[in-house]
Design a protein around this nucleic acid. Structure first.
Length: 866
RNA sequence: GCCCGGGUGGCGGAACUGGUAGACGCGCUGGAUUCAAAAUCCAGUUCUGGCAACAGAGUGCGGGUUCGAUUCCCGCCCCGGGUACCA
């Protein structure tokens, strides 16, 4: 009988499903191992061959770990809320829930065909009320928390209220919006609503007027990571900066911990680097400059306070609050027209025209607090309102942008470091000896920085300061297909709904567009079922108004990995988002597989929520995933991105139908290293198909299964153990491509040896079973085993089988002649440096020409030099 | 611009911490089997010269360290990714 992959695969697919072969147990004595894939967004186009790449690798690893005796959690689910389903709904009127469910069913069919060992009993769906009630619950926790910088930890808001009640804002070290100081007495005297308003400045989930990315085409705001090059990531629509009242999460509170945590986890350097850059820590000083003839101060942030003697002018962002206050009457007109100009420039224009030097003089002067000299204050849009203090001390000698500005407006340029050449550009050197800098003269830059900061702090005109590029994450979307906020308003002050009223179920509406009044789609809902238990209904508009925004796509994915840990029936699962027992058993994800495109989005929020839940005492760890592998993209054969739009999509179903799932799995792994981008090619799949047929034939003679119980000989054992060693070592270092080569070598050698011995073929089957599980299960059962191969112990490697009696080593003599010297087999790595032995051996062969120096290097070669 | 990766046959790619470069697969060439084809099997396949044995060169380019470098160091070129007035 020939190898009939389609019936074999169908048989085992069904068997695994019926017997729940891959169900993980929470109460297990075994050591745990958690392998997670980034769950897919179920799009209408289904899976193409690129999607399963990571799933195949993680599945291989899960199966490998099961063989090693681990209790493996390997779940899958759907990131089901999101824009495309809603855009589709707007066009067709089809409810997103309906299309989403259809897509999920299609995904499941496709995934099942590839033979993954997922524990489907734990499936999550972020758009399922049973799931998002907990997303809402976590939001409530964020709302009722603040960040205590003194202990670097989030705390319940009650501790902040207690602080206010006892000492007001004195001795408070919190991450918060700007606030006015007050005493305990004042706090107690504030009306209730005012207290609530103040607390909002501290909450980790807060609503505030902020500059946000507004996308008119999508009709919603977007987070920074959802905007790429000034256009929306989804759809590529233009985005503008707008001041709007929006929900945000105070991720900036965690900036330092998100940075530090990177050193504790095993992610790729490039991904860590992306996150580091995104967080963008910079260390320097904040310095206040008095404004001449005004009761005002301009505060600047600089990483180079040592260059303060070269600060020949100041620049404020056009949006800076002092601009109108300090502008002199004769400059009013010029400033007004410049403000007009900057407003007219779109974000895109501003970003693409960074070379263009523009600005205007306010007519005001600042007093340099160190030199007491007067410097003019300008405004320009190269200074950003959102970073630092929105103002800079311009040092044209050491900063190219300042230099360009100085040249353009004819402002003085003073070098402050010896040898600084400013004739045709700034000299941005970070070391050297200070000049033109009074008491700093003669110092080296690092020393000057310390000295000047000390002086600034002494004088009380500023302080050491660390800034981050990271911004708080805008959390509301003017959209329908997302989690509703568990929020209602009293006098425009947000209040959370009771936890036991969750979930706040997404109400039915019949059109998915914004309302005529410009409210988000949820404004169309006339009835909100927000009290499930008692079936109470409050009407929108009556009672208290409810938040009409929904949460962004990344809300559910920020914690979904915890939900997989929950076991049990509906009632158990309805009790808590994840049980303490489950979390203390499964802990972090041990291997997380997914695309690097989530570096500044999901992977940051995912870490942020984990740290928050850790602070709240729900999790015994504060990083979600220990090891992360970014699988590369599979492109079309021309190297283009595989997409429905380009019509170059290869459907895995077709590949499975033609070559089988095992061949698809082997081929995807064999294309190259998992992290690399690589084009799909159909040619190579013949190679792995051929391998599978050879493997099958190894166990058969014609139609008959023909495995014997004969004792294996040396050569056969060697072929097997070479394979065990290679595959085990490779899998241990997360290499999924090279084991395929090892299988091929082994099968070729065993075919040459005509080996049909159980002693060899049983372990070989286990080795192959991670990559090609269907054929392995079939051969395993033909070998007379009743249970699934999936948890059979991994073969043990024995080095003895690889040893030869003697090995022949080449020797290069005098760099010219080559000699073959036969060395004893036990002369391996441990012989390093033992020149005498090698000398003797060499001498024996080089009779008479005794070498001066012989060096034996691990395992292999003897070089002889005369 | 800055920060990370990476450059190996006709192609995808091996080579663990410096130790016989090109494993394995694809493709190609020749052969066996076949009436023929498919499938299968065998041999060859880095380049140059040679019928061959063999010799020389060879891991983007130029230097260096080393008995020995794809691997380590310095300079340059090219490709991919991230980021972009972040003071």
């Amino acid at each position: 009988m020939e190898y009939d992959f389609s019936s074999i695969e169908r048989k085992w697919r069904t068997r695994w499903q019926q017997e729940l072969t891959f169900r993980a147990q929470n109460n297990s004595k075994k050591e745990k191992f958690y392998v997670l894939d980034m769950f897919p967004y179920p799009s209408g186009s289904g899976l193409h061959v690129g999607h399963p790449l990571g799933y195949i690798a993680s599945d291989i690893f899960s199966r490998y770990k099961r063989h090693l005796g681990f209790n493996v959690l390997h779940p899958m689910g759907y990131d089901a809320f999101g824009l495309p389903a809603e855009q589709y709904a707007i066009q067709t009127g089809q409810h997103p829930a309906k299309t989403t469910q259809e897509n999920i069913d299609r995904y499941r069919e496709q995934l099942d065909l590839i033979g993954f060992s997922f524990d489907w009993s734990r499936q999550v769906n972020t758009s399922d009320p049973e799931f998002y009630r907990w997303t809402q619950w976590i939001f409530i926790k964020l709302f009722h928390s603040w960040y205590n910088k003194a202990i670097e930890k989030a705390e319940p808001i009650e501790t902040l209220i207690r602080h206010f009640e006892t000492e007001g804002t004195a001795n408070l070290n919190a991450v918060a919006d700007d606030y006015q100081d007050f005493t305990a007495e004042e706090w107690k005297a504030f009306p209730f609503m005012q207290q609530r308003e103040i607390l909002l400045k501290f909450r980790l989930a807060y609503r505030a007027e902020t500059v946000v990315n507004w996308c008119p085409a999508l009709g919603t705001v977007l987070a920074n990571d959802e905007v790429v090059n000034g256009v929306s990531e989804r759809g590529g629509h233009p985005v503008e900066q707008r001041k709007m009242k929006q929900w945000s999460l105070r991720i900036t509170a965690y900036a330092q911990r998100l940075l530090d945590g990177l050193d504790t986890i095993d992610w790729t350097d490039s991904l860590k680097e992306i996150q580091r850059n995104w967080i963008g820590r910079s260390q320097g000083a904040q310095i206040r400059f008095a404004v001449k003839d005004h009761d005002a101060e301009v505060e600047v942030f600089t990483t180079r306070p040592d260059t303060i003697f070269g600060a020949t002018f100041m620049v404020l962002a056009p949006e800076h609050e002092l601009v109108s206050e300090i502008t002199s009457s004769d400059q009013k007109k010029e400033i007004a027209s410049y403000l007009e100009y900057t407003k007219s420039r779109s974000e895109r224009e501003r970003m693409s025209e960074t070379k263009k030097v523009t600005g205007a003089f306010t007519g005001a002067y600042a007093i340099n607090p160190i030199t007491n000299t007067e410097v003019p204050i300008w405004i320009a849009d190269y200074v950003l309102a959102g970073y630092g203090t929105g103002a800079v001390m311009a040092v044209p000698a050491g900063d190219q942008r300042d230099w360009d500005f100085a040249r353009h407006f004819n402002l003085p340029i003073t070098p402050v470091i010896e040898g600084q050449d400013v004739s045709d550009g700034a000299d941005e050197r970070k070391d050297g000896t200070m000049i033109n800098s009074d008491f700093l003269n003669g110092m080296q830059v690092p020393q000057a920085i310390q000295t000047i900061i000390d002086r600034i702090e002494e004088l009380g005109i500023g302080k050491r300061k660390v800034n981050y590029k990271l911004r708080d994450a805008v959390f509301s979307r003017q959209r329908y297909w997302g989690e509703p906020f568990p929020i209602y308003y009293r006098d425009d002050i947000p209040f959370t709904m009771d936890e036991d009223k969750l979930p706040i179920v997404l109400p039915e509406i019949n059109e998915f567009k914004p309302t005529e009044d410009g409210d988000p789609p949820l404004g169309r809902a006339t009835r909100w079922n927000w009290d499930r238990e008692n079936g109470k209904v409050i009407e929108n508009g009556k009672g208290f108004p409810i938040e009409l925004n929904t949460m962004p796509g990344w809300a559910g994915s920020s914690w979904y990995y915890l939900r997989y840990m929950m076991e049990g029936n509906k009632e158990t699962r309805a009790k808590e988002f994840v049980s303490a027992e489950a979390v203390s058993y499964w802990k972090q994800v041990d291997l997380y597989m997914g695309g690097a495109e989530h570096a500044t989005g999901h992977l940051l929020y995912f870490r942020f929520w984990t740290k928050f839940l850790h602070d709240m005492g729900y999790l015994p760890f504060d990083e979600p995933a220990n090891k992360l592998i970014n699988q590369g993209m599979i492109q079309a054969e021309d190297g283009q991105k595989m997409s429905k739009r380009y019509g170059n999509v290869v459907n895995p179903d077709d590949v499975v139908a033609e070559h089988g799932a095992d061949a698809l799995r082997l081929h995807e792994m064999f294309l190259g290293p998992i992290e690399m981008h690589k084009p799909w090619n159909t040619k190579g799949i013949e190679g792995v198909s051929k391998f599978l047929r050879k493997l099958w034939r190894l166990y058969h003679n014609g139609d008959d299964f023909a495995v014997t119980d004969e004792k294996a000989n040396k050569d056969e054992l060697k072929a097997l153990h070479k394979c065990i060693q290679k595959v085990t070592e490779d899998l241990d270092r997360f290499a999924f491509n090279t084991p395929v080569s090892a299988f091929m070598v082994a099968v070729n050698e065993l075919t040459d040896l005509q080996c049909k011995k159980r002693e060899i073929l049983e372990p070989l089957t286990i080795l192959v079973s991670c990559h090609a599980p269907h054929i392995a299960e079939e051969l395993w059962s033909r070998l007379g085993n009743e249970d699934s191969i999936s948890e059979v112990a991994w073969p043990i490697f024995n080095e003895d089988y690889l040893k030869d009696d003697s090995i022949t080593y080449p020797v290069s003599f005098n760099g010219k002649t080559r000699f073959q010297i036969e060395l004893p087999a036990d002369m391996g790595r441990e012989e390093v440096g033992k020149e005498v032995l090698a000398h003797e051996v060499a001498q024996k062969w080089l009779a008479g020409n005794a070498p001066k120096k012989v060096i034996v290097v691990p395992g292999r070669i003897v070089n002889v030099v005369i």
